[in-house]
């Protein structure tokens, strides 16, 4: 196995996630896309960890932290989406244009 196959997979996931963030209308799906981006980073980190043979397992540990952070972010994100939805009866982020100048 080579390292690049993992990292390229990570890069692909990251780019796909970015595409999703930029194109999805529904806020929940935007969140999902963000999860893709973070998952991509996780793939990288674990792969590098193994590749480097890191005794302190910094890559894996960071992955663990990122998973937790992603969970927290999703929680926050869903809360905000709910908030928006309550006021606007819609979770579509393309309708957010109150502040336009």
């Amino acid at each position: 196995m080579t390292i690049i196959q993992f990292v390229l997979l990570g890069a692909a996931l990251f780019s796909i996630g970015l595409y999703g963030v930029l194109t999805r209308k529904n806020a929940v799906l935007v969140l999902a896309s963000v999860e893709l981006m973070l998952a991509a980073v996780n793939v990288n980190l674990v792969a590098f960890d193994v590749y480097l043979g890191d005794a302190s397992h910094a890559g894996q540990i960071m992955t663990l932290f990122l998973i937790a952070l992603a969970a927290a972010e999703v929680g926050i994100g869903i809360a905000i989406v709910l908030l928006v939805f309550r006021n606007r009866r819609s979770a579509n982020i393309d309708e957010l244009d109150v502040m336009r100048y």
Binding site: A27, G77, L83, N87, I93, L96, V98, M99
Partner: peptide, 11 residues
């Protein structure tokens, strides 16, 4: 506006 700010900021 505040909702919107939160969502924009978040994303």
């Amino acid at each position: 506006k505040s909702n919107e700010a939160a969502l924009k900021y978040f994303i």
